[in-house]
Write a protein that binds this DNA or RNA. Structure first.
Lengths: 374, 374
DNA sequence: CCTGGGATAGAAAGCGCTTTCTAAAGCGAG
DNA sequence: CTCGCTTTAGAAAGCGCTTTCTATCCCAGG
């Protein structure tokens, strides 16, 4: 039905082997022959059969990118950056496959299985991990298998995996977990400095004079949430130590958890206001949540930053445009994604300790100011 | 190196054929045999070799989704909806491959070529098309070839292709353009009623009493831009006819073009203000552009909607949250994407005339109001 | 007790490509 | 003018799976 290598070979008056060599370009072919082949390819509109090629060569030009929510620019930016490194137009270029897990660990495993089935060249996992030990172990096992199968695994924006727990059990599995081609076994990691960012953000609020600071945090079970919370508390603890205060114990009461969406911010802010009407500042899990917080505060008749300061996290494109513009912690998502992409392609060597941390940066804008002196 | 079908067959004490049948499930296998095979699969942690499977079966479980900008929720929502129809966890499930073209027609062709190489089961093209005749013909040719190769082609949010131009030329190509399996030849289309939406939006402003309406339109060469502009002008023309006015001739002067981003809105609004300081309303190419328009107007000391009304297009999630909340034209992106996904899978039969139009809906919010009576 | 047919499983022929291994030229050196 | 090397191209053996074709087994019906 479709045009095959043999057809091209016949037309060019050469063997199939020669055509293959011309197209892959990793073997010397005389100039005249080469151009004869290329002409035949043109004339017949030949397109390589990818599956056949992958089967024979035992390689694939697919790179999987797992994201929690493709409709969220946070992930869109990273995915776009990963993809920008793939050079699909070039001969050895890769095709990035963006898979939307919806944040579900089960779906994540499903996609990883499908990617393994496709013998993907690499897999990039973005987004925060769920801390449930069962899921974590299942995920680690799957990633180990992928690595053993020669797929490069890169984590982007999630913490490095814990060391292998169980011994993997039965079956005379051969490779001692991933000395496979191009895999160091342990996944490469591009980590965000969430702790440091949250810490600097809280320090900023403390320096402005805020003492009653609410926190609308992300889902309780995700690593990112925990890290940001830890940074926040570390700043409070430092402050307590230096000033003999006790903000840290208050922090529990002033923290609520929700999803990474606007309504969580809205609801969270109302709940915080209920718990502590004297609130002067609210930290949000991310910028989207911060927008919800702002909406709730405004509806409660509070001005920002006049009555309450609000700060977000991530610095998405819309954050600078919000009114008031959001104080937030910038995560260089594009840079991180691009780096993850290069690691996935093996174009950049693994960072020391296999973990590259990208710095976060405090962006002070209009939504935070000193509290009213009452 | 890796576990193969033969290994599983040996372990289960059956033939490779039987294992294949158990896994694909489209052939009767006795219960006892079946469970013996499944146990062997478990024990050996067998994962099917996708390329081999695709080669032998001459099918693939890849579905390509082309988007202009993956970081833009407009496309993210559609992509997510397409993906939600794929059921990757099921046996016959598909793997959606989201490809970011960056709006470049060349990259679009590159991705289509790669997807054809992978023998993708279907391809969904989202986003507006470029109207350049050269590109349009190249694209149409590529899509024809895809269809001829048995790949289902679905257009989502772009107009149906023009009828085949050239006759395709040389080579005794067989199929008369795509009576291939499951392809009707002509791509299936899910179209947005951009004209109608723009028309109703303009009518809304006219009804409020606006007469000097600026338009910060999208890139001049894209179909979507043209359609929205046509709707806008149709409304103006109707008004002129009924009221003996001449708003239509003014429209040219009050239209500027830009990209689909915030800064285009910002710059565009400033330019419009320069051309017509007495502007009472501004339409934007989409909601992101509208935000830029709002920012520019505000910096110019104008209040929204007090001095100038602003309206967008698309109704992205952030639009209701902006302050003031944006009047806009809602495009049911999720619904459209899901439908495109179903068409791609052949789970929904083709619409009459192969074009399904999804309705757009005017969302009147706080950013539009009657102009000041001066 | 024999036979025909349904149910189940195996043998084997590819699918279209890559890649050794091998052969045929082409060319300088002895 | 021949020998041995390099350069270039073909032959053919898979890669791991699917699927047709065929063989076997078992049971009901005659």
């Amino acid at each position: 039905m479709a045009v095959t290598l043999a057809d091209v070979a016949a037309r060019a008056g050469v063997s199939a082997a020669t055509v293959s060599r011309v197209l892959s370009g990793n073997y010397p072919v005389a100039g005249a022959t080469r151009s004869r082949v290329l002409r035949a390819v043109e004339e017949l509109e030949y397109v390589v059969n990818g599956p056949a090629s992958s089967l024979a060569a035992a390689t694939s030009d697919l790179v999987g990118v797992l994201v929690n929510d493709i409709a969220d620019p946070f992930f869109g930016i990273m995915a776009s950056a990963v993809q920008s490194e793939m050079e699909p137009e070039k001969a050895g270029g890769k095709l990035a496959v963006v898979c939307n897990t919806g944040g579900s660990p089960e779906r994540e495993l499903t996609y990883l299985m499908l990617l393994q089935r496709q013998r993907a060249a690499a897999v990039v996992l973005t987004g925060s991990a769920v801390e449930d030990p069962g899921h974590a172990e299942a995920l680690a096992a799957r990633l180990r298998r992928l690595a053993a199968a020669g797929t490069r695994v890169v984590l982007c924006g999630r913490p490095p995996l814990p060391e292998a727990g169980g011994d993997g059990g039965q079956g005379g599995g051969k490779g001692a977990a991933g000395a496979g081609p191009g895999g160091t076994g342990a996944p490469l990691t591009v980590a965000f400095d969430n702790r440091g960012g949250a810490r600097r953000l809280t320090e900023h609020l403390l320096a402005l004079g805020h003492r009653r600071i609410g926190y609308v945090a992300g889902p309780a079970e995700r690593t990112t949430t925990r890290h940001r919370l830890e940074g926040h508390r570390a700043a409070l603890a430092d402050h307590d130590r230096d000033h003999g205060r006790d903000l840290l114990t208050e922090a529990d009461r002033l923290t609520v958890h929700g999803a990474y969406d606007r309504s969580s911010g809205y609801d969270g802010a109302l709940e915080l206001l209920r718990r502590e009407p004297g609130l002067t500042a609210v930290l949000a899990a991310n910028d989207t949540v911060a927008l919800g917080v702002c909406a709730a505060l405004r509806e409660a008749g509070l001005s920002i930053p006049g009555d309450v300061s609000v700060a977000g996290f991530d610095d998405l494109p819309f954050s600078a445009d919000a009114s008031p513009s959001l104080t937030t912690v910038r995560i260089p998502l594009h840079e991180a994604g691009a780096r993850a992409g290069r690691l996935a392609l093996g174009r950049e060597s693994a960072p020391p300790g296999d973990v590259a941390t990208v710095r976060t940066e405090l962006m002070v804008r209009a939504s935070t100011a000193a509290p009213r002196t009452d």
